[in-house]
Simulated scan of single mutants.
Amino acid sequence: MMLPGTRNDPPRRTGVVAAGLVGLAFLLGACETPNPRQANLPPSESDLALLKSASLCERKEHFLQQHPPSALKVTPWGTGQELMVPADQSPLHGDESYFFDEDGVLAGVLYTFRTGLDLDPYPTLRHTLSMLRPVMEFYLHVPGLSTESSFDSSALYETGDEKTTTQYLVIGFKERPTLLQASVTTDPYVRLFSPYRREFLARLKSTGTKKEGQRIDPQGSEDKEPFASLQQFARGQTAQLSYCGPQDYRVAADAYQKAIAGGFTNKVWQAEVHHKYGQALFGLGQYEKAKSEMLQSLAIRPNTPDTLNNLGSTYLKLGDKAAAQAAFEKAIILRPNYAIARFNLAETVEPMNPKRALTEYETYLALAEGIPEEADRVALVQQRVKKMKH
């Protein structure tokens, strides 16, 4: 599940970036972001089984073996496809829409209950929703709703695990909760699967009839950035961060290149997609091209510590230690508690200035000890510090 507050911005790295001179595993980490992990996950228990006949990351060819193509409605979804199982063929009696990317990988699923799904038979899910704070609340008119009122306050809830996000759109949640839509997706695609998206709310055929004193926004949200770019960025993250199988820098690089071609308009997105493209090129061993992309990212947003740190690691691969040192130092100036940049700087200056390296190593230890993902590197640095002091 993505951290709150990141939905409208490019995903920022939540993990730690490794250095470039301590073996291949650490080296590749220098230009990579680990899979997001959230220490305190929200309640997510449910007795409503959504993914019964498919699983996220499933290949389309396998899905089609379980679902006869003649029973599916197929429509384009950007560069991928949406395969819909109509409500009259669904065990949940709702439209089941399965979205596959251009590589044939299942990115997300949307369930639409046009007449509503009464949650009274699902006490576990109701209890989970009662413990969650709505992401948003709004009034919604659903003409086909089978409850007493087709016009009521609705709420969007969000939960999930380390890699996936589940969203529930519920109407009448304060009295008799009725599920209108639910989506399940891998985290890189989460912004593309909000039930509050305009095209998804339209599936409920809201008319927008307004009662006096009530505010209605039946249209839902729209992307401010090109859908093609957002979709390709998510595809790149999925491949780069190993959400659906082994890390694949080739697919990631292809996706980021297409995302750039799609034409992001926001400078934050522009800078981040060049940064991510540079990371993928680094993983492919194309260091000059990686440097070019990271410099382009910094030309758009000059003071970005993560990009500077990764640029420093790229300079090391190109044999330019002076430029690497300058990049690491600037990253630390901008973010003094940037543990991995401290580690990278220490390794870079150690041959020329052991005293400064020792200081940076000790600062790294003070910042990184207790972080599970850094346990191996912390042990390595502790050994180095011990040798340097004797």
Rank of each mutant, 00 (worst) to 15 (best):
M1H: 04
L3E: 09
L3D: 15
P4I: 10
D9T: 07
R12A: 04
A19V: 08
F26R: 11
F26G: 11
F26S: 09
L28R: 12
T33R: 00
P34Y: 04
P34D: 10
N35E: 15
Q38C: 14
N40R: 08
P43G: 03
L48P: 01
L50E: 00
L50F: 12
K52H: 13
L72D: 10
V74C: 10
G78K: 02
G80A: 01
G80S: 01
A87I: 09
D88L: 06
S90R: 05
E102W: 03
E102Q: 10
G108I: 01
F113G: 02
R114K: 10
T115R: 05
T115V: 09
D120E: 15
D120W: 08
P121H: 08
Y122T: 08
Y122I: 12
Y122E: 10
F138M: 09
Y139M: 05
L140S: 15
V142C: 08
T147M: 13
E148H: 13
S150E: 14
D152R: 11
S154Y: 12
E162P: 00
E162D: 09
I171D: 05
T178S: 14
L179A: 10
T185L: 02
T186F: 13
R191N: 02
R191S: 08
F193D: 06
L204T: 06
L204D: 09
K205T: 06
Q214S: 10
R215G: 01
Q219K: 15
E222W: 15
K224Y: 00
P226S: 08
Q231R: 05
Q232M: 02
P246A: 15
Y256G: 02
A259L: 12
G263R: 06
F264R: 10
V268E: 07
A271V: 07
K276A: 05
G278N: 10
G283R: 03
K289H: 14
A290H: 05
A290Y: 02
Q296Y: 11
S297A: 15
S297I: 13
R301C: 13
L316K: 12
K321A: 15
A322W: 09
A326E: 11
A326P: 01
K330M: 14
I332L: 13
I333H: 14
I333G: 11
N337C: 03
N337Q: 09
Y338T: 02
A339D: 10
I340W: 00
A346F: 00
E347R: 01
E350D: 05
K355L: 03
L358T: 06
I371C: 08
I371S: 06
E373L: 11
E374I: 07
V378E: 06
K386N: 12
